[in-house]
Write a protein that binds this DNA or RNA. Sequence first.
DNA 1: TTGTATGCGTTATCAG
DNA 2: CTGATAACGCATACAA
Lengths: 334, 334
Amino acid sequence: MSTILDVAQQAGVSAMTVSRYFNQPERLAPATYERVRTAIEQLQYVPNAAARSLISGRTKTVALILTDITNPFYTTIVRGVEDIAQQHDYTLILGNTDEKLEKERCYIDIMISRRVDGVIIASAPGNNHYLQRVFRRGIPVVLIDRTVKDIDADVVRGDIYTGGKRLTEHLVNQGFQDIALIGGFTGVSSLEERQAGFRFAMEAAGLTPKVHPGRTDQLSGEEITERLWKEGKLPEAIVAANNHVAVGALVALRRLGLRVPEDIALATFDDIESAAAIYPFLTVAAQPAYDMGTQAMELLLDRMQGYAGPSRNRLLPTELIIRRSSIAPTVVAH
Amino acid sequence: MSTILDVAQQAGVSAMTVSRYFNQPERLAPATYERVRTAIEQLQYVPNAAARSLISGRTKTVALILTDITNPFYTTIVRGVEDIAQQHDYTLILGNTDEKLEKERCYIDIMISRRVDGVIIASAPGNNHYLQRVFRRGIPVVLIDRTVKDIDADVVRGDIYTGGKRLTEHLVNQGFQDIALIGGFTGVSSLEERQAGFRFAMEAAGLTPKVHPGRTDQLSGEEITERLWKEGKLPEAIVAANNHVAVGALVALRRLGLRVPEDIALATFDDIESAAAIYPFLTVAAQPAYDMGTQAMELLLDRMQGYAGPSRNRLLPTELIIRRSSIAPTVVAH
DNA sequence: TTGTATGCGTTATCAG
DNA sequence: CTGATAACGCATACAA
C-alpha cells in the first residue's frame, strides 16, 4: 500500500507538497499540482484516515447505536441520519444492541476507542450510567427516541405521549372500555411516555388503564397476548407498545381464533409503511422516523461544530392514522 | 483525553507495560497488573484505535455497502452480518448507495482511506470497474446479492434463477398466459437471473416472456404499472423484480381500481415478514436474507484470516411462499 | 511556492 | 518481568 512518501518520490517533490495537494491545493503551482496528480493516479494513492485523524484529533465518524435495525422505524431513522451525514462527509459506524445493555456497553467502548466525533443513540433498557463515559469525554451525544436518566443531552423523539393519548381516545370513542397497553420495557422513556398518554386518556374517560409491560419484539407481543388469554384477561382493545409487538399480538390472536377488529381491537405506534401499502390495516400513532434521523444528525453536527449551549429537546408530532384494526364492530355496522 | 503515557505515569510504569496490559496481560507481574488496572480505571483510559491500527495495519473494521437500507431484505442482511461481525470483534461501517454508482464510488474511496479490513457489497447498477480499486489493494471483498462483471470475488446470493422459475411455473399452473416481469435494473445480475428463470419457465410453457425493467423502488413499480395500463398492456399476471416494486404495483393497481388477484395476479421476490404476519398476501420467492448476511461475513472472515484460495460461490435456496396475490380467480372458485 | 523537523498515540524490537 | 527507542503515515509550524 503506497504512502504519501511514495507519491512524493514518484512526483519528485516532498511529502508536504503531496499533503498540500489534498489540504490546500490552491497553494500549489499548476505544474507541481499536475505532477502530484498523476503520481497519485499511477499509485492509486488514498490517504490513510487513521494517520490523518491521529493528528487532527477528528475522525469524521459518527456512531449510530440502535436497539433493533430490523424494525422499519429504526431503519428509517438510519436512512435519515445517513442522508445528512453523507452530505457533510461523515461516516457512520453502526451498532445494534438488540435491547441488551451489555452489547450497548460494548459498543460504547468501541466507539470511544475509535474516537468517534459524535454519538447518536437509542439506549437499551436498564441503568445506562455507562453512557456517562462518552459524555464525560466531551463527545457530543444525541439521544434519539429515548431519553436517558441523568444524561442531559440533546434529544429527538416523537410526541408519543400525545400519540398514546389520541390512540386511546380514539379507542374510547369507539366504545371500548376495557383497554390494555401491552409490551415495551419498564423504565424506558419511550414506554413510560406511551403509558402516560394512555393512562391520561383512560382516566379522563373514567376508565381503568391496564398495563402489561414486556419487550419490544414480536415474540413479546405473542407471549403477552397468549398469557392474557390463558388468564381470561384479554381486553376489548389492545394498544401495543410498538409495531413489532402489535404484529405479535395479531399473530397470537389469529392463532387463538380471534378476529381483529371484530373480536378484539388493536392499535399501536410506529407505522410499517410497506405493510400498510399492501393492506392498510393497523391503526397507528406514527412517528416521523426519517425526520427524527435527519434532525438528530443536524443537532449532532451543531455540537461537533462547537455549539455548546443548553441541550435541546426536539419533540416531533405523531400522526394518528386510523385504519381497520381499531374500528369497533358496532361502529362498522352503522 | 488521556493517553497511554498518562496511564504509565499514574501507575509509575512505562508505556510499554500499559500496552502489555492490553495485549499480553499474562506477562505482567500481578502487582503491576493491578497498579495499571487502577490507573486505567481512574483515568478512564481507552486505547486509541487509530494509533493502534497505524502500527498493526489492521482496523478490525468491515465496510457494508448496500443500495437500500430501507428494504427489509437488506436490513435482514445487515442483521446477519452484524451478528457475526460482533462475535469476532469487527465493527461495521455502513454505506447506503441508493442504487447510485456515484455514491458507491464515494463510499469505496472512503472505505479505502479508512483501510477497512474487508468489504461486503451489493453493488449499484452500472459499470462497477471502480470496485477494482478495492480488489487490487488486496482488500478482501464479498459480493452479496449481486455479482459484478470482471470481479472474481466470493459471492453470496439467493438462487433467484430457480426462484423466478418456480414463481413463474406457479403462475402458469394457475392458468395465466400473459405474464410480465417488471422493475429491476438492466445489467444487474440480480435482475438478469430473475429474468432468466422467468424466461425459461415461460418458454418451457410455450409462452412469450415480457420484461419491463426499471428500478428497484416502490415508485418504479407504480410507474411501470401505470404505463402498462395506459398503453393497454397490463398482463394477466405480474412478477415484480423485488418486494418494493411489488408494493408499488399493488398501489398503482388499487388506484386504477383493479383488484389483486381477482383482476390481475401478482408475485415477487424477497418476503416482507412483518407485512406477511399482518396479512399473508404477497406470493414470494423468499431469499434467506439473514443467512446470506451471516455467510457473507463468514466468507469475509476467512479471507481476512488469510484464506487465499479460489473464490467461493454460495448459492442459497429460495423458498416459494404461495399466498393470495397469485391465486387465479378460477382456481379460487373451485 | 516548496521543504525540514517534529509529534500525534501506540506497539515491535531489542535490551536489561 | 520491564523499559528505551524507533516507527506506523500524515500534517503543523516554521524556514527557505
